[in-house]
C-alpha cells in the first residue's frame, strides 16, 4: 500500500524518476506530503525516506532546515507577512501586529479553528506592493489593515478558493512530459562531442 493518495503516488514516482539521483526528490516530495497531510507528518517523512533511500532522521534533518516545511500541523491557510527591509519601511511590522490582533494569535501560532497560521516571513520578492502578504504561497497584495481583515473574512467564508488553493507549493505544478531526453541519443551525442574535443587537442 502506498502512502500517497489521490494520484500523488504517481507524481511521487515521477519526481523520483526525473532526477539523476533519487535523493534530489527529497524536497519536492516533502512538498507533496504537505499537500496531502497539511504538514510534514512523521508517516510522510518515513515514506519520503523510503523513496529517497535515506533514513527518516535525514529527511527530518533536511526538512527542518527549510522554513516552508512544517513538522507540526499548521492551519488551512498559512498567512505570511513580510517585515524585511522594504516591507518594514512600508509598515510591515505594524501590519503583522495588526494581523496578530485580528487573528487572535501570536506569530507562529494557529487559530483555534485550525484555519490560520500566522508567520513572519523574510523577503518574499514582491517588494513593490509592500508590505507583502502571502496566503498559501500566493501573493494576495493586501497592504493595509483593512484589506487584510477583508481577506481574512473572505477566507473564513470559504472565498477565493480558486485563487488560493491549499498549501503544498506544487499543488498546481504538473509536469506532463515524462520522458527526459532520450538517454541513448544523449550518449551518442556525448561520444561524438568527446571525439570532437579530443580531435582538437
Amino acid at each position: 500500500m502506498s502512502y500517497f493518495t489521490d494520484g500523488r503516488q504517481a507524481r511521487a514516482e515521477q519526481l523520483i524518476a526525473i532526477y539523476p539521483e533519487q535523493r534530489s526528490a527529497l524536497i519536492p516530495l516533502c512538498h507533496l506530503v504537505q499537500e496531502q497531510d497539511g504538514y510534514l507528518s512523521e508517516e510522510g517523512m518515513v515514506a519520503v525516506a523510503e523513496l529517497c533511500g535515506v533514513t527518516p532522521a535525514e529527511v527530518r534533518g533536511t526538512a527542518t532546515f527549510y522554513d516552508m516545511l512544517h513538522t507540526e500541523p499548521v492551519g488551512k491557510y498559512l498567512v505570511g507577512v513580510c517585515t524585511n527591509i522594504a516591507c518594514l519601511l512600508a509598515g510591515g511590522l505594524e501590519l503583522l501586529e495588526h494581523a496578530e490582533g485580528s487573528l487572535g494569535v501570536r506569530v507562529g501560532a494557529t487559530t483555534e479553528d485550525g484555519l490560520f497560521t500566522l508567520e513572519e516571513t523574510e523577503c518574499l520578492a514582491d517588494c513593490n506592493i509592500a508590505p507583502c502578504v502571502q496566503v498559501n504561497h500566493r501573493y494576495v497584495r493586501t497592504t493595509t489593515p483593512e484589506q487584510f481583515d477583508a481577506l481574512v473574512s473572505e477566507l473564513r467564508d470559504g472565498g477565493r478558493a480558486s485563487e488560493i488553493p491549499s498549501h503544498g507549493t506544487l499543488i498546481r505544478t504538473r509536469r506532463d512530459v515524462d520522458l527526459a531526453a532520450d538517454p541513448g541519443l544523449v550518449a551518442q551525442e556525448r561520444a561524438a562531442r568527446r571525439a570532437a574535443v579530443e580531435g582538437q587537442s
Binding site: E42, M45, T55, P56, A57, E58, V59, R60, G61, T62, T64, F65, Y66
Partner: peptide
C-alpha cells in the same frame, strides 16, 4: 540516524 535539525543558531542534533 542522527542529523542536524533546524538552521542557524537553532541547529540541534536529533534523531527521528
Amino acid at each position: 540516524l542522527i542529523d542536524f535539525a533546524g538552521r542557524g543558531d537553532r541547529v540541534e542534533v536529533s534523531t527521528f
